[in-house]
């Protein structure tokens, strides 16, 4: 474990807690894409299939359980909670996430480290995570005003993978010089997708104005 990875995990955890807090405290999920949240559940389920089989550390296991639990409960709130589900606007959250799931799955079958169930699912989860934010970013572009919590949520979500990129650089030079193209390139693409959001987020923060993404 290194400081970059810990910072990344804490940023990721904070983003999820922020979202869960918004949903529970405001009883609203306005501006949040259910499609993206469902993709994250798929990402965590397919990545943590080895949760019951392999034990790395208490930290690793507890964080996997927390990520699984929180992401599933966010989808539950948005789909089934009698008050919250009224605030979900499915007419604007129209991104067909099957167009992300299928290509990522096919790609994981073609490009992976080993053609085993665990390895293909793990690879699929990395590819899917890289593009999972797209429905949310499309939704933000359609939203006239983005509330601060949602903006902060997306910012932290993008920042976490940027910390992971630093963690991978650290691990490569300091630890074991092993090349791992799949996580590296997926993580790079994931962070790149946030680039224009980061630009507008920081601009709105500096100018103290409302966050607005160009349509």
């Amino acid at each position: 474990m290194n400081a970059f990875r810990l910072a990344g995990d804490m940023t990721h955890l904070l983003s999820i807690i922020l979202l869960l807090h918004k949903i529970r405290a405001m009883k609203s999920c306005a501006g949040i894409s259910l499609r993206t949240q469902e993709l994250y559940v798929i990402v965590f389920v397919t990545r943590y299939v080895d949760l019951s089989m392999k034990y790395y550390s208490f930290y690793n296991s507890i964080m996997k359980i927390v990520f699984l639990g929180t992401s599933i409960s966010i989808v539950w709130y948005m789909r089934y909670h009698k008050v919250v589900k009224q605030t979900y606007n499915k007419d604007v959250d129209t991104f067909r996430h099957i167009f992300l799931i299928l290509p990522c799955f096919v790609l994981a079958l073609l490009i992976n480290r080993a053609f085993t169930v665990i390895e293909v699912l793990w690879t699929f989860s990395l590819y899917l995570e890289a593009v999972a934010i797209l429905p949310q970013l499309v939704l933000l572009q359609r939203s006239r005003n983005i509330d601060n919590l949602t903006g902060n949520y997306v910012f932290l979500l993008g920042a976490y993978r940027a910390f992971y990129l630093l963690n991978w650089i650290y691990r490569f030079f300091i630890e074991n010089h092993q090349v791992r193209w799949i996580p590296w390139l997926s993580g790079l693409l994931q962070t790149a997708i946030y680039a224009d959001f980061f630009y507008y987020y920081i601009k709105s923060w500096k100018n103290r104005e409302k966050l607005k993404l160009p349509a």
Binding site: D9, D50, E119, W122, Y164, Q178
Partner: peptide, 10 residues
């Protein structure tokens, strides 16, 4: 082995 040693990440 590469893939297993890197599965310690979240």
């Amino acid at each position: 082995e590469e893939s297993s040693s890197f599965k310690d990440e979240l």
